[in-house]
């Protein structure tokens, strides 16, 4: 058994909250720079240049890239040979969020109740997805989610007869309807299969993958490539002002499903697409 004290988790999460919000990930920066070289619209090129400039200011001053520092979403993979010492893992993660958002001057955007709408004041509770794994590692992936893009996401229970074409159409329809709202260029997470809630989780998890990494299955890697080309042919462009760069990447994640179903979820991320992983 490997012991990990809750204090280690709290500190790791506190640090991740700040770093994920201050520093644009290298893979995302590279994708924006690469898109800037290809973009044919002058205003689109200007916007992409400003996004890089914005990331530079954020890094230099250690302030958030975007004011929507998100609802704190975590994917936690806990090795079966790990014992968390001194408290609950969920409490430790929430305490890390509380400290990170306070110490880091990040915006507190979380309401305790969706209808009565009162701000909790510390950006908790976090949304945490757990998975048990072999070994003695504790992996924590943090992907704070802004709601400009979250609001433009969608899920549909397609019929098996809709097939792959139905999936592609749903992805394109969702991105077209989102238009300028999710702050393009976007990253598109697509979940296919599972049950309704599993499908939504797949789409969210797809957004934690590094840009430039393809689905390991060549069949889905090819679909990712095709969808990206079709999305960029929509002409929405950076900020919706027109251009070739509507999306930086499309990531597809799949799971087994039922004989009667073909669930499909599309989770959209903005161009900041924050994702950070630590292993304890």
């Amino acid at each position: 058994m490997k012991m990990i004290p809750v204090s280690t988790v709290v500190e790791a999460v506190r640090k991740m909250c700040m770093e994920a919000n201050y520093f644009l990930c290298d893979d995302v920066r590279a994708a924006i720079e690469c898109a800037r070289g290809r973009e044919s619209s002058p205003i689109g090129r200007d916007i992409l240049k400003d996004l890089i400039k914005n990331a530079d200011v954020a890094k230099e001053e250690e302030i958030p890239i975007c004011q929507d520092t998100g609802m704190a979403v975590f994917f936690v993979r806990l090795g079966q040979e790990v014992q968390i010492e001194g408290g609950l893992l969920t409490d430790a993660i929430n305490e890390g969020v509380r400290r990170g958002y306070s110490d880091g001057y990040l915006r507190k955007s979380v309401l305790s109740d969706p209808i009565r709408r009162e701000n909790t004041g510390d950006n908790t509770p976090a949304v945490i997805h757990y998975e048990m794994i072999q070994g003695d590692r504790l992996e924590i992936t943090f992907a704070p989610k802004g709601f400009g893009s979250e609001n433009m996401s969608a899920l549909k229970m397609l019929k098996p007869s809709d097939g792959l074409e139905g999936v592609k159409q749903f992805v394109l329809d969702t991105v077209r309807a989102a238009g300028s709202n999710p702050c393009p260029p976007i990253v598109v997470g697509v979940g296919i299969g599972g049950t309704m809630e599993k499908c939504a989780c797949l789409a969210k998890y797809a957004l934690t993958r590094n840009l430039g990494e393809k689905n390991p299955d060549p069949f889905y890697a090819q679909i990712e490539e095709e969808l990206l080309a079709k999305i960029n042919a929509l002409g929405i462009g950076p900020q919706g002002f027109g251009g070739d760069t509507t999306a930086l990447a499309v990531h597809v994640e799949t799971f087994a499903t039922h004989i009667a179903g073909l669930p499909c979820a599309v989770n959209i991320n903005c161009h900041v697409t924050r994702h950070k992983k630590v292993v304890l």
Partner: peptide, 25 residues
Amino acid sequence: IGGAGALYSKCITSMEVIAYEDLGP
């Protein structure tokens, strides 16, 4: 520009909360 919050903060020279302080952000 959506997502360019750091850049825009540099254009702001003064800030005063004038109402609804309880609403935080």
